[in-house]
Structure formats: C-alpha cells, structure tokens
Amino acid sequence: MRTLTAYIEGIGLLGPGFKDWPNSLVILKGHQPYQACPTLLPPALSLPAAERRRSSNIVKLTLATGLEAVAAARLNAADLPSVFSASGGDGDNCHEICQMLASDDRQISPTRFHNSVHNAAAGYWSIATGAMTASSVLCAHDASFGAGLLEALAQASVDHCQTLLLACDTRYPEPLHKARPIQDAFGVALVLAPTRSLQALAKISVSLTDAPAEHLEHPELETMRLAIPAARSLPLLQCIAQRQTTRVVLDYLDNARLAVDVDVEMSAC
C-alpha cells in the first residue's frame, strides 16, 4: 500500500486573518473577503495558573487549535494520541537564551530552559488535557505540515485509532527573524479517524508525488502558504471548505510532494 487514508473529523485553525475554522470556512469558500490582520492568540485557559503564566505563543496556538478540532469532532482530548509538527519552537525564548549565552551572565532561568525543548507545546498539551497517550513531536523545516500529516495518517491507519495532528509555527524576533522570516503565527489541527463517522468532513488519501504543489489564487493567501510551513495546508483546507472532491498537491520536501485525494462525498469506503 502506497497510499494512506483517513477521515477528517474536526478542524482547528488560527492564523493571520483566520480566527477559527467556522470563520475561515466562509473566507476559504469565497463568501467573505480575506482581511489580513495579525494572529490573535487566546490565553491558555485550559492550563493551571502556574503553567499558564509560562506559556508562550506556540503553546497558546497549539492549545487553541487542538481544542477547537477535538471539540468539533466531539471527542475527549485525553483519549487521543497526537502528532505535533512545528518548524521551530518558541522563537522568543530561543532568542533570549542565545542572547544570555553570548553574554557574561549565562544563568538562564529553569523555565526558559524547559520551554526551549521542541516538545514544550506537546508537554503543555498533555498537562492541559490530561492526555497520557502517545505523542510524536516532529520537525521537518518547511516540510513540517506534510511530515506531520504522514505521521498522523500512519498512526490512524496502522494503530487503527483516531489521532490528532497539530501543525503550528510562530515567528522569531530579530536577529533570527531575518534568517528565518516567518511573519506571524499559524496553526492547524486535524482530527483524523481510520473509519467514517457522523462527524466526518472528508476522506483523504495521501501518497508521495513528483507533481508540483498547488498554488492558491488569492495573492495574500499564496504568500502566507509560502511563508509559513503550517500554511502549506491551505490548499487542502480550501478544498474541504469548497466541498470539492478532487486531487490537491501539497508542498512537502524539496524532492517530494504529497498528492491528496480529497473526497467530500465519501461515497465509496
């Protein structure tokens, strides 16, 4: 089998001009114009007070999108294994640590250090939701969304379970921003299931391809797709929003893309 298949049961979305999935749906359908505005990250209310104070942008983004997707799928977050894919960690924290390590005072704080691990958001997610399930924490630079999608599909189909994919990226401050110019936070979460349920929005079948990645017609959205790794998911989200049964090619590695057959009718199982 060279194709991985699953049903999307819930979507969470947050990004510049996208405040949640229902609002984004209307924009991606073309029923409302896209209006750029900075990503608004809600406070991480699901965390205990001590952890909430320490939570960074990537933690807020992960919690908000993940909880939205899980609620849409009418599931309990604690039951779901998860895949976290991010092209970087907490950029502000990384900058502060590098700055201190280059100074005469290298005594970074313990909180800064434990927030520096790539799986910080996964750890906070598990504390917030009580999930003691398996989680994969991944990075594939610009290919991070595709890598997370493949991992989550493999988990859903091989382990035959519902799985939560969370792909989130946040920006670095200067001087790292110049080396890695991600303009703003963007996160997408998908609940994937091996079998069809009442909540299913679409069936997706994914394989590797040499075909070029789909571009978005909307210039601002196309810029976002190219600039933020998690926004590489936008052509897929647009298909689902427009209820199109079609093939869409998503950007992945420099020498491989992902062909996604989207089936919104889900007729043949």
Binding site: V117, H118, N119, A122, S135, S136, V137, L138, C139, A140, A143, A147, L150, E151, L208, L253, N255, A256
Partner: peptide
Amino acid sequence: LSGPAVAVSSA
C-alpha cells in the same frame, strides 16, 4: 533519498 524524512524532537 527522496522518501519521507523527519526529525523527531521530544527531548
């Protein structure tokens, strides 16, 4: 290589 590739980073 051109197959799936990823870094796993859970500390």
